[in-house]
Computed example of a mutant assay.
Amino acid sequence: MNARKRRVIQVALQLFLERGYVQTSIQDIIEHAEISKGTFYNYFSSKDDCLIAIIEIGREQTMVKRNELLLGKQRSDINVLIEQIVVGIQLNYNQSLLPLLENVFQSGNHDLKSAMRNYHLREIKWLATRLVDVYGQQLKPFKYDVTMMLFGSLQSFQKMWRAVTQEPFNVAAALTFLFAQLDRIIPHLDDGFMSKEISSYMVQYIAAEHISKEGILTELQELLPLAQKISKESYELTAFLLEELVKDEPNITIIRAILPSFSGTFATTAYTEEAINITSSLWRYLEEKFN
């Protein structure tokens, strides 16, 4: 995604939050982003498509932050999982995405509801996978049951908290309490309620993302001569990622460790967007292939 398209998305999000999604027209976005109608339709087929892009960017940002929190940590560390859940909620809150997404989900728009459903299903799938990381393979037959228990309890606590106090809701404290209860419950689980049904539902609506390694390699090759103009570090990190990814067995640990530095060396440069796209694609590729 180029910088201009990302700028249009940022303008659209701000307008959606200020005026409401329904009340914001494509013409409003065009005027505030200072682009032509042709440019808008080159990027998006509709206003709905623009909002779906906003949802996808939010998901990618959350995924990158969550993966960075795992660097140098054990996947079985419950405190890391709590941090990962919190950072996802905070990112949505900071960008004011939650109210917007809730309104969209309650609307009758089929495409937007489908995009929101996929967003929620991917969150459920991610958390179920991470719960297995923490509690072990014995949880696998019940992973979606436990995931729904955790999600549902957290949402209920949030709603009740807003009703009874004006104080900020402490997500980490609530999760610490809920996981303490799961610690007591999980060893006694011997049957699931609907993990099989949820798993079948997942297959219908969300498939593996199939991020292409060849596509990432092409992007890195195109970035390499540009990186040389930025700094020695930018060039060396880009070259290293290229060298590792072409191997049959790349060093996943090292790739994960240097990704934050790689994207950081391009921050505030003319190639920030290219580095962000590569970083996001690489995290998704690593998650799909090696977790």
Rank of each mutant, 00 (worst) to 15 (best):
S114F: 13
G38C: 02
S76P: 01
S261I: 05
W126F: 14
T238Q: 02
H120K: 14
V80P: 00
F142V: 10
E68S: 04
I198E: 12
L91W: 05
G38Y: 00
F169H: 03
E274L: 03
R162T: 06
L282T: 01
R284D: 12
I230N: 04
E167K: 11
S76E: 08
T24V: 08
Q27K: 13
L224Q: 10
L15S: 05
I78T: 03
L112E: 09
D28M: 00
I255F: 02
L259M: 04
I278E: 00
E18Y: 00
D248R: 14
Y119V: 08
T24P: 06
Q84C: 08
T265D: 03
N109G: 11
V87I: 11
I278N: 00
V80L: 02
G58P: 03
R66G: 07
V132H: 09
T253K: 13
L81K: 02
L112F: 11
I89N: 07
E288M: 11
P250E: 06
R75S: 11
Y144M: 11
E222I: 10
R256Y: 06
S107L: 11
G20T: 07
S96Q: 08
H110S: 15
Y21T: 10
M148G: 10
K289I: 11
L15E: 02
P168Y: 02
E56Y: 06
Q181M: 12
G215M: 12
N170M: 05
Q10I: 00
V8K: 00
A257T: 10
E244S: 05
A3E: 04
Y144F: 15
P225N: 04
R75N: 09
I82M: 04
F193C: 14
L13N: 03
N251H: 10
G264V: 04
Q61H: 06
T269N: 00
A275K: 02
M202S: 12
V104N: 07
L13A: 08
L121E: 13
R117C: 14
A227K: 02
R284L: 15
N118A: 15
R66C: 06
L98V: 09
S195T: 15
K47I: 08
Q74L: 10
S76W: 01
V104W: 06
E233P: 04
D183I: 03
L245P: 04
T218D: 12
F177A: 12
A3W: 00
L51I: 10
I57T: 01
L178A: 08
R59C: 11
S195R: 10
A3Q: 05
L154H: 07
L182M: 12
L121W: 12
G108R: 10
K232A: 13
G136A: 09
L241I: 03
L97E: 03
N92V: 05
A267M: 09
D191C: 15
M1P: 07
E233G: 05
K140T: 13
T272D: 05
V22K: 14
A180T: 08
N42H: 13
